[in-house]
Nucleic acid binder design. Structure first.
Lengths: 245, 245
DNA sequence: CGATTTGTTGACTAATATCAAACTGTGTGG
DNA sequence: CCACACAGTTTGATATTAGTCAACAAATCG
């Protein structure tokens, strides 16, 4: 499969694209790079000249405070371009790191600029992606701001499931997600110890389980309910939502 | 002053715009509306046909969870277009409300589309604004995720000060900000009681004060330090930063 | 296989929430 | 002009959630 297919699929899950639009994305020169888990792909303060399409594996965006505490801002999955904003924001204000072995496709900003200048619809689709990104951040604020520990975890997994559905990476309410409890803690604004206990409670109640990089939503209904999850903020089109059924 | 001047000033604090670009923004038809404090301007679920430029006053974006708790996601100041994303995300995923009497300028999406189709630089400037918006959300996640109560409050005010500087609304380290402690609590993910106590501590230490809609940063250095504030994530240009001096 | 990372447990502590009441200021109608 | 109503702030007492520390177990890796 051509590396950009996953991107086209993702864009189409959010925006209608004509075949010519898709072809223009397919024509993008992509520089493939494989990285092992825990690689820092781009760092706060960098001025990247290209953006990074996730083809395989998982990445996370994170900020480290002056006091040395880390907050994970987002997890990213195949089809995402987590640093698309560097097209217009020249300085990275956070880190991008691989949390698993990953296949990345780097696309030069010059080529992206050429694309958005010639294909208005694609430009809008990409703009839209960055806006959905922002919508996800907003929900993340709600998560760490007002939800209690178990809701936070449930919501995070519910969101991940919903986004993975759009790229066909959920089977049987199970999906790969190679995350440590300490990473979960940094994402949810909790301590690892507390994450561990919340996880055990969910396991005991037969709600969900995380084992060896595999998330199992034993009772999806309970997960969605516990997280207070409403997928509206992901702004997926009905096409994408149909996958779910 | 023409209503779009404040927008042009804001855009120029983040992006270089030629005089023709500025003129194209100035030519936008703007429908002015005055609203009293506590008006809900746009609501979650709405499909607005225009976006809202803040000309005077303050607004906030907020989400309400299924359990009835409210999280404020952002405060907005004159020059901001807090619902610009509705150009591409048709359904509002949160509320926009006036927290003070406000003068708003509504700009039809049709006119904005016409503008971005004809003025590439302006389109990029607007896209950039939405990306800065996202960068602010990211920092907000850090704020509620890892900082303790007093850092959160200090950071919020430090950010507000920095953004108000760019539109010339800070004098003598004081600025108007008509917010209740309960709104602060909803923004910071804290209880009103705790906000009240943190505020009192800052007052007692001669760091800052909030009285009758007026924020006074008695010791700006201490505020910035307490919040661990680094303005980099606001992605202002050096032009904007020069105002600070 | 040892070494390191990750997960688990228990005891204790700290930060912040909750609840309820009282207090302050400000505007309003009699 | 006063009294009241209301919104916002302040206070004290108590409860709860989640954090910290420290030790150990289990899994993973070179």
């Amino acid at each position: 499969m051509h590396p950009t297919e996953i991107l086209i699929r993702k864009l189409r899950s959010d925006t209608h694209l004509s075949d010519e639009d898709a072809a223009s994305v397919r024509a993008l020169p992509v520089h493939i790079r494989e990285v092992p888990a825990d690689t820092t792909i781009v760092q706060q303060g960098d001025h990247p000249k290209s953006s990074c399409l996730i083809i395989k594996g998982f990445t996370a965006r994170a900020k480290v405070t002056e006091t040395g505490r880390r907050q994970i801002l987002a997890f990213h999955i195949p089809g995402d371009v987590p640093d698309l904003q560097t097209l217009f924001l020249k300085t990275m204000d956070h880190d991008l790191l691989a949390i698993s072995d990953a296949t990345l496709g780097f696309i030069d900003h010059a080529d992206l600029f050429r694309l958005i200048d010639t294909r208005r619809t694609v430009a809008r689709a990409l703009w839209r992606e960055t806006l959905i990104d922002a919508a996800v951040f907003r929900e993340w604020i709600v998560n760490v701001g007002v939800r209690d520990a178990s809701s936070r975890l449930a919501h995070l997994l519910a969101e991940l499931r919903q986004r993975l559905l759009a790229v066909g990476l959920v089977a049987d309410e199970e999906f790969q997600f190679p995350v440590t409890q300490s990473e979960l803690a940094d994402a949810l604004g909790l301590s690892t110890v507390h994450v561990n206990r919340v996880l055990q409670a969910f396991r005991a109640q037969g709600v969900l389980d995380i084992r060896k990089n595999l998330v199992t939503l034993v009772d999806v209904g309970k997960v969605l309910a516990a997280g207070g999850f409403d997928p509206m903020y992901l702004h997926q089109t009905s096409t994408a939502l149909r996958h779910e059924a």
